[in-house]
Structures are given as C-alpha cells and as structure tokens.
Amino acid sequence: MTEMTQDSPKRGVPLWAQILVWLGLLVLLGIVALGLNRAQQGTVQPGEIIPDFKLTLFDGYTYQEKTEISFSELRGKVVVINFWASWCKPCEQEAAGLEAVWREYQPGGEVVFIGIDYVDTEPEARGYLTKFDITFPNGPDLATKISQFFRIKGVPETYFIDRNGVLQYIQVGPFTSETQIRQQVDALLNQQ
C-alpha cells in the first residue's frame, strides 16, 4: 500500500513509492495471469512429448522384474496410461475391459499398459486390483506428482502415447467398449 499522508503540502508521491506501487501491481497481475493460464490449460495436449517420470509399483506388481517404471525406458513402445481410483465408480466400468485388452497385447511386447492410482488408499486400491484381476503394472501417484504433470481433470482418464513418447490421444471418462481401446492402440501400432 502507499503511504497515507504527506508531510509537506504540495509534494507528490516519492518516486520510489511510485515504483514500488507499480511493481507490486505488476507482480500481482503476473501471478494471477500465470494462475489463470494454468487453470485454462486443461490436460496435456496431443502432440506434446511426455517427459520422464517414475512410478513405484504396488507390491506384487513388476515391470520387467523391476518394481519401478521409468517412463523413458518405454521408448519404442506404445504406452497406455490409465488414471483411476478405487472410489471412482465410472472407473469400474472400464477396468475389466482394459485388463482384457492388455492380455491381448501383452504377448506381443510392443504395448505397455500402466495404471496410475490417483489419491487412493492402499487397502481399497488393492481390493480394486484384486476384484478386477488386473495384471498390468500399477502404482500409486505419490504426492499427486504425475497427475499434476498430466493436469488430469478427473478419473478415469487414459492417455495414449506413441513409440516416440508423443501423446496422441486422450480418453476422458470411461471407455464404453473394448473395441474403443483396441482402435486407439492399433492406430498407434500401425503408425510407422
């Protein structure tokens, strides 16, 4: 804030105070602009390259005998990243379908499915995984870092990433059929 009073009758605001006021306003507007920009961004967009992130898997899940997945190690493969949570009813609609499709592609070794469990409690999450007999690598989104990076708007959301690590397609909300999933995966497999 500026000063309330002035000592001598006709003096204006000292220069330093003026600079301070404008600077303060600029910083405030800057922060709001950045915040607004963030709020308006939506999820990461198709065409963006997904940088590296690490996912620690739930006990009992491994990927190539390791308990942690580095996204960068998956270059050259088609990656399907599914955000879910055990408290999310719509997620249950697609869980069995995702697993079924995963079992079709798993032998080929060209496609990797990853489940990321968003803001969930471990016991219930494990119950969910057991209930739908999910075998593809799954792990919790520790400190919500990965979901914040993808800027997900809710669960379920599924991200399809091609062999070059470029995001190609986003499914917001549950899949209605297995064919829908297959279509997207096949499209990416046939890319080259």
Binding site: G12, V13, Q40
Partner: peptide, 29 residues
C-alpha cells in the same frame, strides 16, 4: 471468461492507481 476478466481487472487497477498518484498532492489533510 477468465482472460476477459483479467484484462478488465488490469485496466481498472492501472487506471485507478494512476489517477490516485496524479491527484495525490491535492488530497492533503
């Protein structure tokens, strides 16, 4: 409406502060 609002806020703030600084000397106690 976010961006439109943002511009309106920016303009309001800048104009009000500029006017205030301009008239500062004549607002003496």
């Amino acid at each position: 409406i976010g961006p439109a609002f943002f511009i309106f806020i920016g303009v309001t703030f800048v104009v009000s502060i500029a006017l205030l600084l301009w008239r500062w000397p004549s607002l003496k106690s």
